[in-house]
Simulated assay, not measured.
Amino acid sequence: MNKMKLRGIGLAVALGLGSIAMVGCTTTPAGSEASGPTARAAMDRDADATLSRLYSTVPGTREMVQRAAGVLVFPAVVGGSFVVGAEHGRGALREGGRTTGYYSTTAGSIGFQAGGQSKAVVYVFNTAEALQKFKNSNGWTAGADATVAVGKIGANGSVDTETVKQAVSSFILTNVGLEAGAAVGAAKVTRISL
């Protein structure tokens, strides 16, 4: 084989190994994967904090969530990538202000990318039908099992009226605030036991 071909193969192997190593890297504190009452209480606290942050970042979302059939809150979706990317997080489903279940989300992507990040993802089920379809599913995928509208801010700085009219809306929060126009992609959501 010529040197160029060997270098190409070597680079591909290095990128592949780097991708695997990046997926294993997270900023999740040790012990956060625990289960039982402590894990549920911690998840509920984190979901409360995420919702409070959403309410202070996007005026009108508190009222939107109060009128919604349910809200699914993932306080920390951690992703790592180097050519191949993966994201994972755990969250709580709230109905009428109380937690009714716990879920995990996982998404992957392929393409030129590098780095890692953490973000909060909130799905608002604006209709009872959308929430029931989600709860009856055996693994729900955003975009495939339901159209998920990106939460938008209107000219007045509050949540856009069209966002409230959608069956399912999503909001993505980063360290700097709302990630405007960011879609959730094909995130797979599955019920878990904590």
Rank of each mutant, 00 (worst) to 15 (best):
R67A: 03
T105E: 12
G36A: 13
I110C: 06
A39T: 01
F74K: 03
R94C: 03
M1G: 13
A12K: 14
G139F: 06
G89V: 03
Q117E: 02
G143D: 07
V65M: 00
G36R: 11
W140E: 00
Y102E: 01
A30C: 04
D145W: 12
V77T: 06
F134L: 00
R90Y: 13
A42F: 09
G60W: 15
S170Q: 14
G111Q: 05
K152E: 00
S52K: 12
A155N: 12
N126H: 14
T161D: 10
K135E: 12
W140A: 03
R40N: 04
G70I: 12
V176H: 09
Y123P: 00
Q117V: 10
E179S: 14
K188I: 03
G10Y: 09
T127F: 15
W140K: 02
G139D: 00
G70L: 08
E63C: 12
S193G: 11
D160T: 00
A142E: 08
T127D: 03
N156D: 06
T190G: 09
L15V: 07
A182N: 05
A183R: 13
G101R: 05
S193C: 04
E33F: 15
A69I: 05
S109I: 02
A30H: 14
T106V: 13
P29F: 11
V23L: 14
L6E: 09
A86S: 04
A92P: 01
N156S: 10
Y123N: 00
K152W: 00
V124A: 07
A167M: 02
A167L: 12
T27A: 15
S158A: 10
M43R: 14
G80Y: 02
R40I: 12
M1I: 07
L15M: 12
V164P: 01
M1V: 09
T163W: 10
E33D: 07
R67S: 14
G16R: 12
T38P: 09
D48E: 11
G143K: 01
T61E: 08
A76N: 03
A142R: 00
K3A: 15
V122T: 11
L173I: 06
K152G: 03
Y55Q: 04
S81M: 15
Y123F: 11
G177W: 12
K133C: 09
S109E: 02
V84K: 04
G36E: 03
